[in-house]
Design a protein around this nucleic acid. Structure first.
Length: 127
RNA sequence: GCGGAUGGCUGGAGGGUCGCUGCAUCACGGCCCUGUUUCGGCAGGCUGGGAUGUGGAGGAAAGUCCGGACUCCAUGAAACGACGGUGCCGGGUAACGCCCGGCGGGGGCAACCCCAGGGAAAGCGCCACAGAAAACAGACUGCCUUUGCCCGCGUGGCAGGGGUGAGGGUGAAACGGUGCGGUAAGAGCGCACCGCGGGGCUGGCAACAGACCCGGCAUGGCAAGCCCCACCGGGAGCAACGCCAAAUAGGGACCUCGCGUGGGCAACCACAGGGCUGUUUCGGCCCGAGACGGUCCGGGUUGGCGGCUAGAGAGCCUCGGGCAACCGGGGUUUGAGAUGAAUGAUCCUUGAAGGGUGGCGACACCCCGAACAGAAUCCGGCUUACAGGCCAUCCGCGCAU
């Protein structure tokens, strides 16, 4: 583990939210049991970790249902991009988010609509 | 021009904005450690985000089917055996089940393509259906001839003797095929050609081919059935393996086998005994009071760094050897290393083929917007998937000259 992220935080004033990648299977499973919000092109899962650490963590899931390796990679990249654009303004500190890709819609849906979808889903999950 | 055959190349293009990741350089911050100090710092290491520059998916990255490199484990010798693989000959290669060149067989007018292509006189097994008969030789039917009897006297019927071997619808396969002679009818019985077997000869490194001589002919097929022969082969894989840090654990229950002898106060030693090394023999190692036996239960299996991308490298040009695969030399250019896994997201322009509408047509307008597919230690192959486009060589047909 990199030494204690929380130690160097106090100095920061506004400080943009740190976004890390979710890596452990256990974290994915915990997120799956928390709140969720559907959307035509993806499914959003969100969980408040309640561990006093502000870092936002983000994960992606594209199962074999999405398609072959090329289709799965493309779906993940689009989800990653839309999250990169939307999340910094919308995310709540201390949350884990997981975006799950769908078969054809994730790759096909208009990108502007995709951003709107994510905003709506985040709002629903935070409510 | 039309139809083919073979080999090879390519795998949308241009731009704007915003990102990801490796490396290099540059300053900046953090402060822990080390060194030093004139106590301000400085140097090294660690670490955090940033700027600039530069590199960043494929011909199959795929299937994971072969062959290697590399790493760890195992590895005493001989003989024997088991298992798996390969299978015409020669060459290439680090190696191969791959590639090249030949040979043999089959297909095609041809270019060319296809072949799991050792052994069936070592043995066992199998040969469906059909057929008189399916494996070793005859039976059945037939053909010829002859004797007797019968009648409605005929190219008749019945019974018997003798001769004969391929005429018998079949079938994947029938004591070799075709023709002529021969005969009562026939038959390699004789002859010619083809096939087959044997022999030496010639050519070839060889597989094999050729002509010649001899033999009237002896060995049905299946070895992607067992098998025999020759050759090859230790096992597991980068989640290999090494290092650092942290944490946890250094277990428990039951069963099986064993707990022997001698010396010594004891530690221990020696010998029995047990286990491992495919088997055996010799040898070696371990245990020796427990087991490097089995079953079940419980706990753990995290993070980082190295391995990690420079090599049997690749592309192009060129010289030499070789029919070729390929080998040797020179020059030049080039070089993904991610790890919830980067190599992109989005917008604009252009846009192949395809589809639709109109038109005799050239064409115009509209729709759709590139196939298969994403490195995971690295190479050499094979196999499979693939929208289109392009090039070279060759073959057949047609037309013109």
């Amino acid at each position: 583990m990199p030494p204690a992220v929380s130690v160097c935080l106090p100095s920061g004033a506004p400080l943009p939210l740190k976004i890390e990648t979710l890596k452990n299977r256990a974290d994915f499973l915990r997120a799956a049991r928390a709140k969720r919000a559907g959307s035509p092109a993806f499914l959003l899962q969100a969980r408040d970790r309640q561990d006093k650490v502000a870092t936002v963590r983000l994960g992606f899931t594209c199962s074999k249902k999405v398609g072959n390796a090329v289709a799965r990679n493309r779906a993940k990249r689009r989800l990653r991009e839309v999250a990169r654009l939307v999340l910094p303004q919308m995310a709540h500190p201390g949350f884990d988010y997981v975006l799950i890709g769908r078969a054809t819609e994730t790759a096909a849906r208009d990108f502007a609509l995709l951003q709107q979808d994510l905003s709506k889903a985040l709002a629903k999950v935070h409510a």
